[in-house]
Amino acid sequence: MNFSKRTYWLFLFPTLLALLLVLIIPFGQGIYYSFTQYNGFEVSAFVGLDNYKNLFSDDQFVYSLWFTAGFSIASVIGINVIGLSLAMLVTQKLGRISTLFRTVYFMPNLIGGIILGFIWQFIFLKAFTGIADLTGLDIFRGWLSDTETGFWGLVILFVWQMSGYIMVIYVSFLNNVPKELMEAATIDGANIWQSFWKVKFPMIAPAFTISLFLTLSNAFKVYDQNMALTSGGPFGSTEMVTMNIYNTAFKVQEMGYAQAKAILFLIIITFISVLQLYITRKRETEL
Rank of each mutant, 00 (worst) to 15 (best):
F124I: 06
Y170P: 13
I119Y: 10
K179V: 00
S72Q: 06
W160T: 08
L157F: 03
K126S: 01
G78R: 07
I114W: 06
F101E: 02
W152I: 07
T149L: 11
Y165M: 10
V104F: 13
F106R: 12
I73K: 02
K93N: 15
V76A: 08
G164S: 14
F151P: 02
R96H: 05
V168Y: 00
A74E: 10
I119N: 08
S85V: 10
W160N: 08
T129G: 00
L154M: 15
D133M: 12
Q92D: 00
R96T: 03
M167Y: 08
G78P: 05
I77K: 05
S145F: 00
M167K: 13
L86E: 06
G136W: 09
K179Q: 11
F173Q: 07
I123Y: 02
I119P: 07
S85A: 15
L110R: 01
I73T: 01
F122Q: 07
A69R: 00
F158A: 14
W143A: 06
T99N: 15
G150K: 10
L134T: 03
M162H: 06
I111Q: 12
Y105I: 15
G164F: 11
L144M: 13
I156D: 02
G83P: 02
R141T: 12
V76R: 07
G112L: 12
Y105G: 12
G83A: 04
Y105T: 13
L94C: 05
L89P: 04
I131P: 01
L86K: 09
S85W: 04
G153M: 03
F140L: 03
G83Y: 07
M167S: 12
I97P: 01
W160L: 05
P108G: 14
V168Q: 08
K179Y: 00
N109D: 00
L86P: 04
M167H: 09
T91F: 04
M88E: 03
Q161N: 13
T149N: 13
G130R: 02
Q121C: 01
K126W: 01
E148P: 08
M88K: 11
G142L: 04
I77D: 03
K126N: 07
F106A: 06
S163L: 08
Q92Y: 00
L144P: 05
F124H: 05
F151D: 03
V155W: 06
L154V: 09
F128N: 01
M107G: 00
N80E: 05
L125G: 10
F173M: 09
G95Q: 07
D146S: 15
I73Q: 01
I111E: 09
Y105R: 13
A127K: 11
I73V: 13
G70R: 15
G117M: 15
T103H: 01
T103W: 06
F140M: 03
T129A: 08
K126V: 04
L157H: 06
T149Q: 13
G83W: 06
F158T: 09
N80C: 07
S85G: 15
I114R: 11
G117C: 14
